[in-house]
Design a protein around this nucleic acid. Sequence first.
DNA 1: TAGATTGTTAATCGATTAACAATC
DNA 2: TAGATTGTTAATCGATTAACAATC
Lengths: 276, 276
Amino acid sequence: MNGAAATAASERTARKSKAREGNEVAVAGRSQSGSRGAAPAPDGKQLPPAVVSRLTVYLRALNSFLADGVDRVSSDALAEASGVSSATLRKDLSQLGSYGTRGVGYEVENLRQHLSVALGLTRDWRVAIVGAGNLGRALARYGGFGTRGFDVVALLDTDPQIIGNEIGWLRISDAANLEAVFQRTRANMAVLALPASVAQAVCDRVVAVGVRSILSFAPTILQVPPGVTLRKVDMATELQILAYHAQRGEAGGETGASSDPDTTYDDATHPGGQPA
Amino acid sequence: MNGAAATAASERTARKSKAREGNEVAVAGRSQSGSRGAAPAPDGKQLPPAVVSRLTVYLRALNSFLADGVDRVSSDALAEASGVSSATLRKDLSQLGSYGTRGVGYEVENLRQHLSVALGLTRDWRVAIVGAGNLGRALARYGGFGTRGFDVVALLDTDPQIIGNEIGWLRISDAANLEAVFQRTRANMAVLALPASVAQAVCDRVVAVGVRSILSFAPTILQVPPGVTLRKVDMATELQILAYHAQRGEAGGETGASSDPDTTYDDATHPGGQPA
DNA sequence: TAGATTGTTAATCGATTAACAATC
DNA sequence: TAGATTGTTAATCGATTAACAATC
């Protein structure tokens, strides 16, 4: 038993140590953060992971205010709408610069613009979805990724039965040609909607072809080399965390987000959504 | 303009303040935590949110070790596999009790059992999925929620065209009868796979019927009263966070998870997965 | 006994909160 | 000017890391 333990353990270990050098470790629900890289702040500093997450929440709240015809908000109002304290909100925003007016508040459109710039949403991102199962197709049909800026340029799968099928504007490509498809479409982000069994292998190919931003829905722990950002969305984890809180009687609820995620879309209609 | 701002802002404010009293705020990617409630530790303390998230990661790693026939692991090996430091791992586990043996390590099956208990995975959870669009259907078809323990007992939608359709083992119920369906099936968790426009209204009904654990995929900020735990899974947020890192050159990658969310399934096949 | 590895403590680091001076 | 609200500082709080004594 010791032999088995040692062998399996060291195989894993080999993989992981390679992947972890120079990387921050982000656990479910926590955010992420790189250990290097420049910053999108007025200067060049890296924003703390918790701040980056919240900026996406503020951005959505601002979009919502804008849709309501509101063009000025106080830190108090925006904080309430975002589910954070106004102290936190002001501290976060002050890391980007001084975009408010004392005694007045923030101009919604202006602040929205600055947040977009800080988050890197002014350029276009080309997303390839690997895996055209139920989830992959649902994601592909989902037009409004955030507040635009994310274009789904490819949808891949290995199943001969579905290769060539049209999903929304896309045709399912053969994942055997993953490299060619990524290069042709100049995809610079990948979404993995795959079973655990093949996720690491596909992830490796995606990394090899030069993609440095990966969002995985695969129910497994993936390893990526330094310089590649990997985020995970994981329903089982979320349910387990809910179970923990439900179990302990009336644990304090929470408002806000997960995900590290885990949280906050933007203002579009959801992938598989249907009024209910 | 000021009038509009004030009005819209205070409407939001009214909602939020009600929801926020006594609640912790969790932002995308961060974890959650209740401000009250007992704990699943050996004693009765509340586990820190970051720890709860990581426990789910350890659990998955343990399942994986088990599948490989490994029955003993050191904190070093388990930490590597989970993408955390061994110091963090030992600190986390020690909050549950002393389940390791000095000089030897942890027994995989034993530790797995203890983690399951700590996370509240020993009882069965009955999950109702509201919204049977692409995403809702993908989730419903996904048999293995974590390592079992989560049963999908209902799938609801308002679209007359699809009510009554069979999805996996389920038949789509009319969301108009949400209360009756939840009561009949004794659902104690809800998954919201809805468009932003109806998410809050449905959320309110789910809360009213007594559900205290909600996982939302809706691209909007939801408000829940104290005592209700809400987690969010949000693709747009995740992509925005990736954009932030991609934008700043080769930001440090990350391994682990999101969601607050945000991370780590367990070991089953993913919802819409298809080999690619 | 010698080697290995846990459980725990103390030190460091980062994030949140509260308060208020600056300023519109 | 008086009132409001930002931007920032200092204090608190929590989480991570490193080191090591306990102990198998």
